[in-house]
Amino acid sequence: MTIHAPTSRRPLDEAATDRPTPEPPRPSLRSRGQVLTPYLLLLVPTALVVLALGYPMIRQLVMSFQEFGFAQQFGQPPEWVGLDNYTAILSDPYFWVVTLRTLVFTAGAAGTTMVIGVALAVLMQRVAPAARTAVQIALVFAWATPVIAAVAIWKLMTDHRNGVVNDVLVGFGLTEFEGFDWLDGGAATFMLIGATVVIWASTPLVALSVFAALAQVDESMVEAAQLDGASLGRTVWSVLLPNIRPVLVLLGILQVIWDLRVFAQIYSLQQGAGSTEETNLLGTYIYHTGIGGGNYGVASALAMVMLLLLVALTWRYIRRLGKQGDLS
């Protein structure tokens, strides 16, 4: 399906027909492969993943139970402190503020991305090929734009002095946006810009994947629904979407994961936009605590809490993956 083997390139078939072999016993790949081969093949990739992700994960768990600050960076052995880091975090009201803010941000950004993405996919299905291509090209460009470049563009567009967003709003008669400072004017408008950058960049994946999935839905079902007099909205909601549920679930999960851990966009917007205290999400909070503040123990505990939050939100999906056992 995904590979288009050109028909001209079939040396094997020709070679096989030249030779009049009297039907040799075809050795099955499975029986001939030594038992060890797959494990040997997996050795290097597994080692690399363990080195880059597995070991840090364990190390982080250990560090979250230790006092690990500047002294430890200069060689002092870390001290075991049990659950101290966790109690420090959980009893800090600021942690709850940041967590709540992160959850609201995630729900808002992921939800909006999914809704706009599905809407654009349905729209692409219904328009002329030229219009569809225009949408596809625009989406692919937004998707591909490197994240820091994207943030820079949006920063320029929402600049309080010369930003085009304010110009347009003022042009529509909303004069209160003259010189309005989106990034330094409080957490709400800052988050709005952050979410806009995220949604702009992540909607394309949803729209294009859903569009590809919709193309595989059996037309006769849509036809039947329309014959029964179902409206467009009804057809989409009760016929199309249930048919592509696996894709929607996967995309939704990915959005939640990506938005909950968001870092680059928020960090980049924070530079030169006043206090980070008001605009931190979990990702930047971990960064400022650990890399910025040198408090690796507490930062590790924070990161573990973020991982737990992720697992809690995606648990049902992961369990289903596990249950499916042998996939394809």
Partner: peptide
């Protein structure tokens, strides 16, 4: 699904 943002400290 493990995000780098949850691991960069360690």
């Amino acid at each position: 699904m493990i995000p780098a943002e949850a691991l960069f400290i360690s």
